[in-house]
Computed example of a mutant assay.
Amino acid sequence: MKRLLREDSGPPDVGDAAFRLAVRAHSGAIAQLLLQYGADPRQSAPGSLVPLREAVDSGSPALVQALLDDRIRGRYAKSELLSMRDLARHWHETGVEAELRRRTGSGDVVTRTRVQDDEFNSVDEYALDGITVRDGHGAILTHLEELLGVRTSFEELMDRALAHADQNHTAWASATILLAHRRDQATWTAAAELRTHTDPVHRLFGAEVLRLTHLFDDSDEDAFAGPALDTFTDWSAKETDLSVLAEVLVALGEHAAPGAQAALLPYAGHHDTRVRRAVARGLSVWPSPPAFSDAVRRALRELIRDPEAGVRQDACLTIAEGKDRDPVLTDAMSALLDDEDRRVQVIVVYGLALHHDERCVEGARRLGPPQPAYPDEERYLGEAWRYEWRRDGR
């Protein structure tokens, strides 16, 4: 669908018709994608879209958000939004399986499948007696409360996220993002206090809220930068759970400070892949310094030879986009032109092109055209083509 939208040159109203079809088919992810590419929901008559109640019942946050796009939100009276909030709360508190059994009266086995709800987040989908419902009602409730101007407590938002205990679940993402955008001291303190919680899932939630609070702060003051760096540096030395440690290290990597790199380096040889990937990504400081320190160079040379393809890919990307043009690092990248993983090869070609290294041309030629399954390949391989054009004076 993304490829079709990028290549589309048809009439502008095709996207509007596709949006209506996607909503009627309960394809919230496709509806959201069409909105991103310019579909105008205002061209949809109220009767051409599913009712908001039906969308809330479906349990798909992506579908509900498509219907509540700011261009058509005025169609819904506040009383209807309040009623939909109560409906979402009922589903969330009752539980999808229990509510399905109540509505169908069926005692059959409920099937449960993890599905992608939007571009970034997933949900569980339950099916019973011909009815299919997703368990995104907690995220829908959070979204409706935000639209209605309701300030939900930190504790309640955390409970909604932890009901799924999965960072990729849309209920978790909606809670952490909303709390991070508050950027107030009370929220910061509540999240920071979770560092000492005995349950690692609580610590993971707190770490993500703190990380996103700093990440989303684009103000000149950046009031949470200093406290975040101190907090995560201390936390990384004490954390025992690997999922939480990886999140803390990712947070450290989002700080352009020498202290952050110093805290990352001891974990470059860690036994857990998630931890090593966090280090490989985190060593890419932005804005990038003219040269990496000797310790960072040594770590990157090790990470680029890692047995896990994801770690090699992240290390190559850090070298590629850094300003350090050390030929030892460039040669280390070129050694992976024949890597068994295509994604690693693509990043190597991209890095060699940025380093103005002739070997990118042959590497790109051997890889062939970008693969549709990876939309960013066109950008990465395009860097090699641009290098060739500049080289040939075109």
Rank of each mutant, 00 (worst) to 15 (best):
R42I: 03
V328I: 15
L229V: 06
D392F: 05
L300I: 04
N168S: 13
V50D: 13
S106Y: 11
E378C: 01
F19C: 08
S60E: 03
V96M: 08
D230S: 11
V348S: 01
A39Q: 09
A373F: 07
P200R: 00
A256K: 01
D108K: 08
H197L: 02
R102H: 14
H181R: 13
V279G: 00
G38S: 04
A384N: 02
L148E: 05
D57P: 00
T189S: 13
Q185F: 05
L33S: 13
C316Q: 00
P12S: 11
E340S: 14
R195A: 14
A384G: 06
R183S: 04
K78C: 02
S153T: 13
A335W: 05
A171N: 15
V296S: 02
A161R: 13
S284D: 01
L67A: 10
E377L: 04
A263D: 06
T213V: 02
Y267W: 13
D86M: 14
L354P: 02
A364M: 09
A192L: 11
L67E: 08
I304M: 05
V275Q: 02
H356K: 15
R114H: 03
S122Q: 12
G269H: 10
F120N: 07
L67F: 09
E54P: 00
A45S: 14
S334T: 10
D135K: 13
A373N: 02
R182N: 03
G322V: 02
C316D: 00
G38R: 05
K238I: 01
G74A: 14
V275T: 12
L128R: 11
V123Y: 08
L210P: 04
D199L: 04
L194R: 11
F120Y: 05
L179V: 06
L87T: 13
L210N: 02
D222P: 01
A175T: 12
H202C: 05
D314H: 09
